[in-house]
Design a protein around this nucleic acid. Sequence first.
DNA 1: GTATGTGAAACCGTTCACAGCA
DNA 2: TGCTGTGAACGGTTTCACATAC
Lengths: 211, 211
Amino acid sequence: MKFVKIPAIAISRLSVYARNLALLDQKGVEVISSVRLAEICGINPAQIRKDLAYFGEFGVRGVGYYVKELLFEVRKILGLDREWRLGLVGVGNLGSALLRHAHFMQQGYTFVAAFDKKAKIIGVQIGNVKVAPIEDMNRLIRKKGVEIGVIAVSPELAQKVADRLVAAGVRGILNFAPVQLQGPPGVFIENVDFTLKLDVLCYRLTSPISR
Amino acid sequence: MKFVKIPAIAISRLSVYARNLALLDQKGVEVISSVRLAEICGINPAQIRKDLAYFGEFGVRGVGYYVKELLFEVRKILGLDREWRLGLVGVGNLGSALLRHAHFMQQGYTFVAAFDKKAKIIGVQIGNVKVAPIEDMNRLIRKKGVEIGVIAVSPELAQKVADRLVAAGVRGILNFAPVQLQGPPGVFIENVDFTLKLDVLCYRLTSPISR
DNA sequence: GTATGTGAAACCGTTCACAGCA
DNA sequence: TGCTGTGAACGGTTTCACATAC
């Protein structure tokens, strides 16, 4: 373990490893080599070893990796060894789908608050939470200990919402709106941009030199 | 314009340019320099010029780019100068949110079919479409001319659904399930993986050497 | 013998810096 | 003069190949 810069992409690969290790563990697989895991994840074995080497030595030479152990370590690296409290802003079609999304709970993510401006939806219980008015954001985010803000509002409102989240002390933002949000240093923003992905698909389907 | 390989990431940037050019056009801005556009998109100006240079010469030296013209060209490059027909598989929380998602229509994407296996939801009208049983996939995908399949089923079912989409002639897949799908050459798969993005956020919020 | 951990090489994408042109 | 278009330099990531350890 050295003091080298860890590539951002390596982190998202760790998430993929964790996911697949969990599946292997469920299936009762106890040991796995980097070659096998690489096949499953669809990447190069050396890549996996490099990625893991940023954080320590988790394998046994001549043997491979113990699935349970490696899963534990990878989850620890990612910070997934505890619950994370999410707060949703924008309880529209997408927002309410996210609140109801079963997968989140299983993975240690819990929505503890949800906000919207539409009077009609305020007070409605969806999944775990009761929808609160935007005005209560600052107070409730602190009270409920929201750590990650999930933005599911229209692109026009997204930056304003992000600013309010940051002002309320949130340092992580998952943004579903198709805009590049700005945030101060120390605030981390990840975008889930499916219109962008659709555009990429269109390009691939259109462009003559496909793949 | 040369025969050089176009980086995949350049394509997603083109989508970002298109989006921001549309906003500028709406605001009545007629000319923009790579420096200004780069500021808006949050990237390096040379990057924009390089990305565009893969496809032609769209600017005027000493002046900049005509917004309307460049928008038109970028949309043409991406293949967004026409309607695209989408078919959804999996009409759960997320799936129905996507069917109702207003933004899609505005951008030239239309859902023309939706499939689910739950008897309860079959026949229900959501947005544009009436939910059909999975068994009708092959027939309806061809009949309705679905070009891009959107997968919003559980991770366990996703690969099977992808296979059926491909068998029905679909060559583009937008996958919301947290799995790495496999497809034959000539089939393009884009993943919208928000649990992965959440994991990355957790890492950033956990890791001591933040940013 | 086998599979990890890792320096070095190869590859790819980004940024610089300036030539070219309105 | 000013901004685009682009070869060259740079920096970062991926892959190779092998020393190392079980």
